[in-house]
Design a protein around this nucleic acid. Structure first.
Lengths: 134, 134
DNA sequence: CTGATATCAGGTGAACTGAAATCA
DNA sequence: CTGATTTCAGTTAACCTGATATCA
């Protein structure tokens, strides 16, 4: 599992190095695309990392003008995240290459098996979250 | 994939923190158990990392007297790795807990599906290694 | 000479803990 | 007061590149 993740990240890092983005930053953007108006803390929980870990990435993406943050008027503690037009443009510009990489990784694996893989990974994640590591 | 790996490592790190071992160090020991007499460079390739990255871990394990290194008489460049009695004892002492964690992670997933998962992960790794990220 | 192994030195990304401020 | 969010500061594990020495 780790080796697949490592290899995938190396490929993605190569892909995004020319535009100065890491694999994880790109991934965070795609999460924000699917789930708009998350706070940094929610995004961290979604990614199973601490709020502090997520903060660095958020700051970098904000400096690159790919996301913006604004206070939630209903809960003034929360800083809601949103993609900018720049962020959306960047995603659509690179989506094809990322899909192609996914296709390379899953070459020879049927649609049924891909759905099975997805289901099993989600189950593993849930099973490990039940008795959290401390 | 990354989240499952992260959660697994967090659990393993908690499990081995009392004896001052990281999850990856434990994993390296299990690899050496299954494949005795590997060199550090072979172990690195096996794990898809550079020889330099592996070196730190090897040094730590040697200092802990869990492995020993000795020159291969047939090829005096190679430093062959072997588990010590201490290393083997440590593995057998903790195997049960690690198997239990694996069981927790795979709870509700059938034997057939587990074999499928393994096969797919190996295929993904091979597919990503074909056009390496330089 | 080329290529593999090991090692030394230095650097980075991406996670962590701890502590403090803000606010529901 | 308790609990969630955000932020500041410092730390760590586990990677990396580059250079060098040994040896097949």
């Amino acid at each position: 599992m780790k080796q697949v993740e490592l290899a995938t990240r190396a490929h993605l890092d190569d892909m995004f190095r020319p535009i100065g983005l890491t694999a994880l930053q790109y991934t965070a953007l795609t999460v924000l695309e699917r789930h708009p108006n998350l706070s940094s803390a929610q995004l961290a929980r979604n990614s199973f990392v601490t709020a502090q870990s997520m903060a660095d990435m958020i700051t970098a993406l904000e400096e690159r003008k790919l996301i913006v943050r604004h206070r939630d008027p209903d809960d003034r503690r929360r800083l809601v995240l949103a993609l900018t037009a720049n962020g959306r443009k960047l995603l659509s510009r690179h989506r094809g290459k990322v899909v192609a990489l996914e296709e390379q990784m899953l070459d020879g694996i049927s649609g049924t098996q891909r759905r099975e893989l997805r289901r099993i990974l989600l189950a593993c994640r849930a099973n490990l979250a039940e008795h959290p590591a401390h």
